[in-house]
């Protein structure tokens, strides 16, 4: 095996893709050829460095950004408010209107009771005028 042949097999040798005979031949060449052995050590170091490249974190809120883009490009067809949230919204609105109406009716009823009470406790103007006439 010459230098060129040995170096051509570096990738397969590194990745365990050689058969028994090829691997033995490469190893025999590397043990007797310092030039190719130096190349092989540099190759191995490169592979260690490349496989050790930092694993970068993805940007924040990829899901949100993608959904917003799809919503915009589909002109609101996808990723708008869901049917479930529409029903929820309608239900909450209905309950709020109902509460408001109840509160209004209760306030009206209370006002009417107050008016009735004040009418009942107020002195009779006709009786008052007859009392005045009698005194005179």
């Amino acid at each position: 095996m010459n230098h060129q042949e040995a170096r051509e097999l570096f990738t397969s040798y590194h990745d365990g893709e050689l058969n028994e005979n090829e691997r033995t031949a490469v190893e025999a060449h590397l043990s007797e050829c310092s030039e190719c052995n130096t190349e092989w050590l540099a190759y191995k170091k490169l592979m260690t460095e490349v496989s050790g490249l930092m694993n970068l974190s993805p940007p924040k809120d990829v899901v949100g950004a993608v959904e917003r883009k799809i919503h915009r490009r589909s002109k609101g067809k996808f990723f708008g408010r869901s049917r479930a949230s529409n029903i929820q919204f309608a239900l909450v609105s209905f309950i709020l209107v109902l509460l408001f109406m109840l509160a209004y009716l209760m306030l009206t009823a209370v006002n009417e009771i107050v008016v009735l009470d004040s009418d009942a406790t107020a002195p009779d103007p006709a009786a008052e005028s007859s009392d005045v006439l009698q005194k005179q």
């Binding site: 051509e8 990738t11 397969s12 190759y43 490169l46």
Partner: peptide, 12 residues
């Protein structure tokens, strides 16, 4: 395989 080998050798 051939592209990978060339890529690694070029990088080296």
């Amino acid at each position: 395989k051939s592209r990978l080998h060339r890529a690694r050798m070029a990088l080296k």
